[in-house]
């Protein structure tokens, strides 16, 4: 067990660094699309050190402090219970049977923690941002859970390990090809949870600057920056496992997660943002219908 935890920490360390570099690359892509040169790809590390190096910080109360901690814990939790590389002792993480349900709660855990923290910060922009964020997250969860249920029904398992195992044996065994509807629903839900346009009104710079993190700085900010590195990675790994047949090596994981993340980036650079009620309506239309179609497909055509 001790060995397992050590391995999980190693994979966490590796993946968080991959996440940081990935964030740098994403910003570089944003810049290139806008015909800019862009920040250095290692800028995220410098930002992290700089935020940690602030000499003073303001604390608004315990919950304010715990908000980013919860958020980070949510990201790390999501990561730790997802098998990064299928069948690897090193990168298998703490995956266990029924982990899909746990991951579902970890998804929301961070957002809720952030809501409490940002609420305590007392800034109206933070409060408005958080209410928007929670509303949108709830709408995003619906197609996501449908996709997750579809996968669980299809492979008759709640264990990610089993789900990945069922997708082995060639590209045509991936959920992407066996049940495209739920994959479409899941990938659209992914856009909503990555906080990129058109669904980033929560962190909107112009509409409400800048939502929940308005009051956060120094160590809190550093935690949130780290979370921004680990959470999308964990999310992308989860989606890779669910829909794209998992990974057999670390390199395969890197390529597949990169593709998953880029999907949201390419949507992000080409759209402005929705208002929150528009994005909720959107999620409750197209992805929801796709999700239901996927479940119907699984139930009636695959069994």
């Amino acid at each position: 067990m001790g060995e397992k935890i050590l391995f999980a920490l190693i994979s966490l360390f590796l993946t968080i660094n991959y996440g940081f570099l990935m964030n740098g690359v994403i910003r570089k892509i944003y810049a290139r699309v806008g015909r800019r040169h862009g920040i250095p790809f290692y800028q995220m590390y410098i930002d992290l050190i700089k935020t940690l190096a602030l000499r003073t910080n303001i604390r608004h109360g315990t919950m304010f402090y715990l908000g980013p901690v919860f958020r980070f814990a949510g990201g790390v939790g999501l990561f730790l219970f997802t098998p990064v590389v299928f069948g690897s002792a090193m990168f298998g993480n703490l995956s266990f049977s029924g982990d899909v349900l746990l991951l579902l709660s970890f998804q929301f855990f961070g957002t809720l923690g952030m809501a409490l923290g940002a609420g305590e910060s007392g800034h109206p922009n933070a409060a408005i941002g958080v209410t928007r964020g929670l509303a949108q997250m709830t709408a995003v969860e619906v197609p996501f859970v449908l996709a997750l249920m579809g996968v669980a029904i299809q492979y008759d398992s709640l264990s990610l390990h089993d789900i990945v195992a069922a997708q082995q044996g060639g590209i045509m065994h991936w959920t992407l090809f066996t049940n495209p509807f739920i994959v479409a629903a899941g990938m659209l839900a992914l856009l909503g949870s990555f906080m990129r346009p058109p669904f980033d009104v929560v962190l909107a710079g112009q509409e409400i600057p800048i939502g929940p993190p308005t009051e956060y700085h120094s160590n809190y900010m550093a935690l949130m920056l780290s979370n921004r590195a680990i959470f999308p990675m964990a999310k992308a790994i989860l989606f890779m496992n669910l829909f794209f047949g998992g990974a057999n090596t670390y390199w395969e994981m890197m390529i597949k997660t990169f593709a998953v993340v880029m999907w949201s980036v390419f949507v992000g650079v080409s759209f402005p943002r929705f208002r929150v009620e528009q994005s909720i309506r959107w999620f409750l239309r197209v992805p929801l219908i796709l999700g239901i179609l996927g479940i119907v497909y699984v139930q009636f055509f695959m069994s």
Binding site: H37, G38, D47, P213, T214, Y216
Partner: peptide, 22 residues
Amino acid sequence: MTPRFDAYRFGVQWRPTPRQAN
């Protein structure tokens, strides 16, 4: 902050709230 001069190259970024700006 836009293509011609692009201060991002030098690690200069833009922050909307005073808490995070330095």
